[in-house]
């Protein structure tokens, strides 16, 4: 009897120890293995990787321009499979062309499947756009919030350009406000089957300034999304940004 009791007690003990484990992820019913997908954000101007400070780029309006700073938010990345299932990263990433470490999003436990579309927002959705009392990349010390009008700057390009009178002029483009939130869908051909994958989300800055709206820095060199006069620019940028990204499969 004593032995039996001891054995029983021991079993209880083991059970309880096991039950003590924190973060018991939902047991997978399916046997398909999940995978980690690393998403690298890269910034290009047509075929070239963005180099800061070079007054040598040319946009569709034939403005010669430079990039001294290029930052933008990519949030709520989703991978959509052939069968319609959605993997949500629930991320807020701040892409910075001047940073080598910041431009990576690691998505863990992506279920097996054939992914055909990637979806994300350029910007911050309205639920998180109206207070700076937030952490991570939404911390106001990243300088991506307007302090006089609570809301995030979704996209920031600063630099110089050469105007039609051949003068070098400042370029300051700050895109934001709820109406500037840009949902983007990019086709992808990604098969997940347990192996870690690496993909690249490539942004072409020149595409942000053309098709359908050609942005000419002679008139649009200083936009802060604050005046009625900025509204046409905001709408144009939104339409352009929508098709300024593509995805490459690296591994």
């Amino acid at each position: 009897m004593k032995k039996k009791l001891l054995a029983f007690g021991f079993a209880t003990f083991i059970l309880l120890i096991a039950a003590c484990k924190k973060e018991q992820t939902v047991t997978e019913v399916s046997t398909s293995p999940t995978a980690t997908v690393q998403l690298n954000f890269t910034n290009f101007i047509d075929g070239q990787a963005v180099a800061l400070g070079l007054l040598n780029y040319s946009n569709a309006a034939s403005n010669k321009y430079s990039v001294s700073l290029l930052k933008y938010y990519i949030s709520n990345v989703e991978l959509i499979s052939k069968t319609g299932t959605v993997f949500k990263a629930n991320n807020v990433s701040l892409i910075d062309a001047g940073s080598s470490s910041q431009n990576v999003l690691t998505m863990k436990n992506v279920p097996a499947g054939e992914y055909i579309n990637a979806k994300f927002n350029l910007g911050i959705d309205s639920a998180r756009n109206h207070t700076g009392v937030q952490d991570g990349y939404l911390d106001p010390s990243y300088g991506m919030i307007w302090s006089w009008n609570t809301g995030y700057i979704f996209f920031k390009h600063e630099g110089q350009f050469i105007n039609s009178s051949k003068q070098t002029m400042p370029l300051r483009l700050h895109l934001g406000t709820d109406k500037a939130l840009t949902p983007v869908i990019v086709p992808i051909n990604l098969s997940i089957n347990g192996n870690a994958r690496k993909i690249e989300l490539r942004f072409n800055l020149n595409k942000a300034y053309t098709n359908p709206a050609t942005i000419d820095f002679n008139t649009d060199n200083d936009r802060q999304s604050t005046a009625a006069a900025d509204e046409t620019w905001i709408a144009g940028m939104k339409n352009n940004l929508n098709s300024s990204f593509n995805i490459l499969i690296i591994e």
């Binding site: 207070t131 302090s147 009008n149």
Partner: peptide, 16 residues
Amino acid sequence: GGAATLEDQVIGPITN
């Protein structure tokens, strides 16, 4: 009314 909350107001004068 540019600052949405009392907390958000704080960073205005500091950075202006």
